[in-house]
């Protein structure tokens, strides 16, 4: 059960890099806009932004095939955009409108898309882990070659049901990739204050689950590790753990004053490790793109996000009849 660090970088084409750049930028700009709309009172309740963690979902989605499933926690906007869900539908759910993916009844933390095989959006820390293994259970039962990406954070990694799930996933050889997005803070609690053994990728060893740690600020490293994990799962060898070291720039939620870390720590990460800047730099130094190309992408992304925001404001509130629908079929 050798657990090790993945560092090799695959050869990557200009086309792929530009795609990752654009996808990460879409998430970044979308989240910035969501932050603005929250400030304007258009989005209510809890709103957990993904800014800083974009490389994780973009790198892993690049390894998925049609029909593969994904499920995550409440910090879910990035996962939905990376899975190809419509930014307007996501934003309209954030504003609680009829045009949202859940007709305004789910909100930021509870969104789903059967079409895109996105199974939520779950608000209870860790609860999505057995659910994700259950999706993989269904695939194994139906004897198809699908895999399920089950995302959770370093905070959820201390929930008991995660280990109940590891046991059964290994026992039944379920095709599930456990993606631990380690952004170093479980809400306001730093990992070294909550976790007796910091190497989360080793947490599956007791169950015979292979794991590795990945630089989550490097989309190519994530893609590389994801390819290996997917290959392992798809070939019927059971579950796989990826501990992806990442960092969230914003607070846990919009109401987080972030007193538990210094402004300098965040600033240093942004300046030195930013996943989007890293790709931008490769694109320019390798002459895969010139500044004007990237500006054009920036402009395109901005217009997509603006259109999503407009849609989310114009979409009507749900009909009052919606209060009573979808409780039971």
């Amino acid at each position: 059960m050798a657990a090790r660090k993945s560092s090799s970088k695959p050869n990557v084409s200009a086309e792929e890099l530009l795609k990752y750049y654009k996808e990460m930028l879409l998430i970044r700009r979308f989240e910035e806009k969501a932050g603005q709309l929250y400030g304007m009172g258009l989005i209510g309740g809890f709103c957990h932004l993904y800014i800083g963690q974009e490389a994780v979902v973009v790198g892993l989605e690049a390894t998925a095939k049609q029909g593969d499933k994904r499920i995550t926690s409440y910090r879910d906007h990035g996962h939905m955009l990376a899975a190809g869900m419509d930014p307007g539908g996501v934003m309209a759910e954030l504003t609680g409108r009829m045009g949202g993916y859940s007709k305004g009844k789910g909100g930021s933390m509870h969104m789903f898309s059967k079409d895109k095989h996105f199974y939520g959006g779950h608000g209870i820390v860790g609860a999505q882990v057995p659910l994700g293994a259950g999706l993989a259970f269904a695939d194994r039962y139906q004897e198809n070659a699908r895999v399920t990406f089950t995302y959770f954070g370093d905070g959820a990694a201390n929930q008991g049901q995660v280990y109940e799930t590891f046991n059964m996933a290994a026992l039944w050889q379920l095709p599930v990739i456990f993606v631990i997005e380690n952004n170093q803070y479980a809400m306001g609690t730093a990992q070294n204050r909550s976790t007796s053994t910091p190497d989360l990728y080793t947490r599956g060893e007791a169950f015979g689950i292979r794991g590795e740690t990945v630089d989550g600020m490097d989309v190519l490293a994530v893609k590389d590790a994801g390819d290996k994990a997917v290959k392992h799962c798809r070939s019927g060898k059971g579950p796989y753990i990826l501990e992806i070291k990442t960092y969230r720039y914003r607070g846990h939620s919009m109401s987080d004053p972030a007193k538990y870390r210094t402004r300098e720590e965040v600033q240093k990460m942004r300046e030195e490790r930013d996943p989007i800047e890293q790709v931008r730099s490769i694109l320019l130094t390798k002459n895969y793109a010139i500044e004007d190309d990237l500006k054009a992408i920036d402009k395109e992304v901005k217009s997509v996000v603006n259109a999503a925001a407009e849609f989310s404001k114009e979409s009507p509130e749900p009909n009052v009849e919606e209060l009573w629908t979808d409780v039971c079929i």
């Binding site: 499920i71 882990v129 057995p130 659910l131 994700g132 259950g134 269904a138 799930t165 059964m168």
Partner: peptide, 12 residues
């Protein structure tokens, strides 16, 4: 754990 796996299987 198994209740959660079963709910996931139902989603699936």
């Amino acid at each position: 754990g198994f209740a959660g796996i079963a709910v996931g299987a139902a989603f699936g």
